[in-house]
Design a binder for these strands. Structure first.
Lengths: 216, 216, 216, 216
DNA sequence: CATGAATGAGAGTTCATTCAT
DNA sequence: GATGAATGAACTCTCATTCAT
């Protein structure tokens, strides 16, 4: 009978559908986690609470994630995608790309929190390298356009890499101080300081570009 | 006759001795807290564990501290004293003072953690203003010598304040990236980047000093 | 064909069974709470102790009850059900119903304690209205038959309500004095005093009934 | 020398003075306990808090009282003195004396709480008989005038005793219901119900007095 | 896949009481 | 008499995780 032949096909189709459904439900959990985390912060976002908001019991989440950390890793993954999208949409050039990076975190402080969840206080955290590596890669990706723009301005690859790392550190420092209210202590404002840093960076690097263009 | 006079003196002496003993024991608890915290991080350093290491029952700590937060505030207070001492001992000048600040935290990463205990993830924390304010003041104190050195180089007060804030942010960013291993991601090293930043800062600010000296 | 129909039925049956099992276990916890409370009183009946006797870890009780208060509310609920059953089983008439009420608490002094758990010392307690209201209703229910009997004897609704409230107060007072040994202080006995009060109540109210009956 | 002779006298005087001072300080502690208890209730009135308000450390209270219970017993003792004073000041007669008793507790609910502190929930409490007995006696004293008035009305001693015990129970029940808000449940009011009870009591007992007076 | 129950560890905090000084 | 420190036990409650069903 045809049914005996069709079964495997049907099974395969059902398997695909089921996998799709599973992914969808995983996304729903993730969405719930996101909302929970954005509303209550890292403290309040217990697995119980996430599960509750997702309409599940705590145990159910373990069908989709191996641990609470994995949930957060997934959230961070999504956050980094948004960051990369923001950077990609920004105008070309050092200023455009670097500002996009800075602004993304300035405007979405919870995404910054998420980035720091990997560390406790400040220690490296229990993300397995398997989870950690692609996240790192996406972070690097978000800075690559700035580095490329620096190279396009005539900077050597090494120098551009160093410059972008320093820029990243500066951004992180500024945002951290801003987010924790420490910057007010010095009667300063993070956006203005960032602008100053950027202007100095461009002053240091642009001349070579201009010189090169002049020669051409 | 003399006895009637001596009594109060004796009482006073006894009071002093007792207060000294009390402070000593408080310090022992604090030391235990420090060790616990350095070994286990903020998560692992529960009141119970601190008490255990100090040779006390949990409740006993409440003779010395009103809450866990207060223990940490005290630890942070001590840490900031050490920082200020290191900065004070450093050679005069922007380079000397700024490097002392940077080096203190580079060499004592746990003190950096401690500084960040005030924030959860990264949110401001439940330290009462009464505890928080003097701590903030001591942090400002540690940066004051650098600011004064910048002023001595001829910078206006405003500019010096902005410059020192940016420097602080840069240091924090570099150390954070370094401490969390993120800086390796970019194949860079925090000390070299700090040196670069410092050189640029001096290049930006020293000329005016030199010019002034030339005029003289 | 039949299998597709049976599945939901089986699921339904399983759900029912599980719910029944859950209720059973909840009842076991409640029984443990009851025993604990009867043996150790309200002070000694901590969540830990109740859990221990129920063969659980303390945290496990939170599957069944949201808080310690809820455990006690549940106990009180059961107690009031027993009270209502006792009153329902009693002979009709003021004497029957009122005596059933009195006797229930005289014979089960712990149930009286339970009733007073709602108050601290004697202040109203933190039972949410959601928990408190149905309990109050069941208490009123237990006195309703007496009130109805008074109305049947010819008393106006208002008068019956006042009479039943006074009766309730008298019972509570007698039992309290009896239970705390204060009644012995006066060389009296609660049951005899209750009988006296009841006789006076009937003397005050019965005449109208008799008169009514005579007219008929 | 006279000093050697005077010493014992001086010692004796000093001893007396010291004892007086001690009693005074004990009273200060008691006052602090009273205030604490009236403000915070039985829950909030920990030994620590009482000591704090009395300007002592917790341990110091044990110079004046053997336990927390003893503090409360002392408070209750003072309360019963106030009660007796109120009753003594009331007009002669059943109505006057009984109303004074009722009103005292209606107007000072904390004194009622205090009375019930002897019981846990409702169990007899760990007051030693040595402490308990004089307290009981003073309670009986407060009811004696009512009993005597009943006897004066012509009631036999036995009947008067029973009547006063029932009255006491009724009062306790009414106040308890009133204080715990249970009386509202029945849309009644304790003072009105007390008045009703009193009127019935007088109706039951007064006739004999009137008859007696008529014969005279 | 999901539930519901349970674990086990632990959180910070409070308490009455004791006792050397 | 009073202090200040310490005990030891207890408190309710929360958590991430596991697992039989």
């Amino acid at each position: 009978m045809s049914t005996t032949l069709k079964r495997p096909v049907a099974d395969h189709a059902r398997g695909q559908r089921q996998r799709a459904v599973a992914e969808l439900r995983r996304d729903l959990v993730l969405q719930a986690a996101q909302v929970t985390f954005f509303e209550l912060g890292l403290e309040g976002a217990s697995l119980r609470e996430i599960a509750r908001r997702a309409g599940y019991t705590p145990g159910a989440l373990y069908s989709y994630f191996a641990s609470k950390e994995e949930v957060y890793a997934a959230l961070l993954g999504q956050s980094l995608e948004r960051l990369n999208a923001a950077v990609a949409a920004a105008p070309e050039g050092v200023r455009g790309k670097a500002s996009a990076f800075f602004d993304f975190y300035r405007e979405n402080p919870r995404d910054l929190d998420l980035g720091f969840y990997l560390f406790h206080g400040m220690q490296p955290r229990g993300l397995t390298p398997a989870l950690n590596q692609p996240l790192n890669a996406r972070l690097r990706d978000a800075l690559a356009p700035t580095r490329d723009a620096l190279v396009a301005e005539g900077l050597a690859a090494d120098a551009a890499q160093a410059e972008v790392t320093a820029l990243f550190a500066h951004i992180v420092g500024l945002l951290l101080l801003s987010h924790t209210g420490r910057i007010r202590m010095f009667r300063q404002e993070s956006a203005a300081l960032f602008e100053r840093y950027l202007a100095q960076l461009l002053a240091r690097t642009a001349p070579s570009a201009r010189r090169r263009k002049a020669r051409a």
